[in-house]
């Protein structure tokens, strides 16, 4: 049994542990022997091509689908904030953003709701109806809704779908702040690899099985990762692992540093 740490302490503990999970859907193996764990204050990102089983793995982790083999353990009393990949709210349902937020966190007062919306850059939509929101606005509201639950674990399936480029960076910063300041665990699915690489603590590269997992820089050099995304894509995605070959002087000049080989080095 996994246990939640008591409030206020920052002991790292495992919130979610997926252990050797396999799942077959209508005769096709979707997941085989997949393991991952999310700890407090850590961001784990699942990357992989279309059809790799990313969303299915998230659903298994959340208990929405049962695996054929293997175990999924979640801490007792775990409060989860979930942002599904795509949400289409039935247009025949009259639903204000206020009510939509209140459904996730019945105890939140109007000030809490407003703060959460401001945090995700959607402070102006509180009185609007959900079907009137744009795709990017709805995505931000979904995130605000998850934050309002004060989650131990935040689960995000493609969290920036429909959000503009500037907004994407903001949202990833917000997610990183949430993990590193509030100590929430984050499990995220993304194909925006180059942005995610910088914001994540651990990458799980999935293609029905775990190809490789670990620190983002290590994964981006892994042969299986390169095989999956191709060396060109992988190299263009790994630009965030840049190497400092010079330092800035107080007068604005630069000085060369001894060269260390980066992942993209094609020389020597």
């Amino acid at each position: 049994m996994l246990c939640l740490p008591s409030e206020g302490t920052r002991v790292v503990s495992t919130l979610l542990a997926v252990d050797r999970v396999s799942l077959t859907l209508s005769g096709h193996p979707v997941l085989s022997d997949v393991s991952l764990a999310v700890e407090t204050g850590r961001i784990v990102t699942i990357v992989g091509p279309n059809g790799a089983g990313k969303s299915t793995l998230v659903k298994v982790a959340l208990g929405l689908m049962s695996p054929d083999a293997g175990t999924v353990r979640r801490t007792a009393g775990l409060r989860v904030g979930y942002v599904p990949q795509r949400l289409t709210v039935e247009p025949a349902l009259p639903l204000s953003v206020r009510r939509f937020l209140a459904m996730a966190a019945p105890k939140a007062d109007p000030a809490d709701m407003n703060n959460a919306l401001v945090r995700v850059g959607a402070g102006h939509v509180l009185a609007q109806q959900v079907p009137e929101l744009s795709g990017g606005e709805l995505q931000r509201v979904m995130l605000a809704r998850a934050l309002l639950r004060k989650p131990h674990l935040l689960v995000l399936d493609e969290p920036v779908g429909g959000v503009d480029m500037a907004g994407q960076a903001e949202i990833y910063d917000l997610i990183a702040a949430l993990a590193h300041a509030d100590g929430s665990g984050v499990l995220m699915v993304s194909h925006d690899l180059h942005v995610v690489m910088a914001a994540t603590d651990e990458v799980v590269c999935l293609n029905r099985h775990v190809c490789c997992a670990g620190h983002p820089e290590a994964v981006s050099r892994h042969p299986e990762y390169l095989a999956l995304f191709g060396p060109k894509v992988a190299a263009s995605l790994a630009v965030y692992t840049h190497v400092h070959d010079h330092a800035h002087l107080p007068d604005g000049g630069t000085v060369e540093l001894p060269h260390t080989h980066g992942p993209n080095c094609r020389h020597g």
Binding site: L62, Y82, A104, V155
Partner: peptide, 14 residues
């Protein structure tokens, strides 16, 4: 039921 109309998975997680 109202939560399910928004999204069944979300309702279950909550």
């Amino acid at each position: 039921l109202v939560a399910m109309i928004v999204d069944e998975d979300l309702a279950a997680v909550e």
